[in-house]
């Protein structure tokens, strides 16, 4: 795998002219076809793809659609395919690339328009399917009692996996999902791993097997590691899937 090389900014040279090719399509505009439109802009110091796109939208083409909220890699809205690889526009410096940068919307998700996709719809369906919330016996909860303490090391482990921002990069990088659209994907399996760790969740491995113990779940993963290699939050996704696979195997063999 070739890692993107950062080109050191040189103050003596004139700024580069960037050619940004955007795969554009608006499904709501009748009679239009997907097309690639190229925008030329001058590279600024410390420019991210988000800044470049904002400048294009502000100065050249107000019809260009892309999403952003936080501009700091926290909200996960600006995920897109950058020169073939899913990533966050706000966390990607233009200096990583040559003067030619090609942007496309994330695959798998429903296209809203241009670079904007409906990750929320997909993520919600995934959450409902995998029941990604803490399951506890609510009738047995005594509100007057102090909350059970959690070991700080365990809390740290839960938090580590909870850092997922549901940006959809792992979904876009997953070859398994491209071939088998019913596959739950790394984001879903990571959530199962997260709730499995949480002592407040009463579910057992028997319950988790019911959710992911098949070829659309953990056993469907073809270990392509695309998820882990593109995750902008550096989550150990392939490692978590392997761990979950061992646990689900042990449960499956007992059935």
């Amino acid at each position: 795998m070739s890692e993107p090389q950062t080109v050191a900014p040189n103050d003596h040279e004139p700024p580069r002219r960037l050619h940004i090719n955007v795969l554009r399509f608006n499904p709501r505009e009748a009679g239009t076809e997907p097309r690639v439109q190229t925008y030329e802009i001058e590279e600024a110091h410390g420019m991210t793809l988000f800044l470049a796109l904002s400048e294009i939208r502000e100065k050249q083409d107000p019809s260009l659609q892309f999403d952003f909220v936080c501009r700091a890699g926290i909200c996960g809205s600006c995920a897109m395919v950058i020169n073939g690889r899913p990533g966050l526009a706000c966390r990607t410096l233009t200096t990583q690339f040559g003067s030619e940068i090609t942007l496309a919307p994330l695959p798998v998700f429903e296209l809203i328009g241009d670079l904007s996709v409906n990750t929320g719809k997909w993520m919600r369906a995934m959450s409902e399917r995998l029941e990604t919330w803490v399951h506890m016996n609510e009738a047995g909860v005594d509100l007057h009692k102090m909350e059970e303490r959690m070991d700080p090391a365990l809390a740290e482990e839960v938090y580590e996996l909870d850092r997922c921002i549901e940006c959809g990069c792992c979904v876009g990088a997953c070859g398994t999902l491209r071939m088998r659209p019913g596959f739950v994907g790394a984001v879903g399996l990571n959530k199962i791993a997260r709730f499995r760790l949480d002592p407040r969740d009463n579910r057992s491995d028997d319950d988790y097997y019911e959710l992911v113990g098949d070829d659309e779940g953990v056993f469907g993963c073809m270990s392509l590691v695309g998820c882990q290699d593109v995750c902008p939050k550096n989550l150990p996704l392939a490692t978590q899937i392997a761990f979950l696979r061992r646990k689900m195997l042990a449960n499956g063999l007992k059935r």
Binding site: M1, S2, V81, G84, R85, P107, A173, G175, R178, M179, M222, S223, L224, V225, G226, D229
Partner: peptide, 18 residues
């Protein structure tokens, strides 16, 4: 078609190995 396009576009070692 999906997979071969994905392998080419992603340019990612482990995906290509598969």
């Amino acid at each position: 078609a999906e997979m071969s396009g994905h392998v080419r576009a992603l340019n990612h070692t482990d995906t290509r190995l598969w």
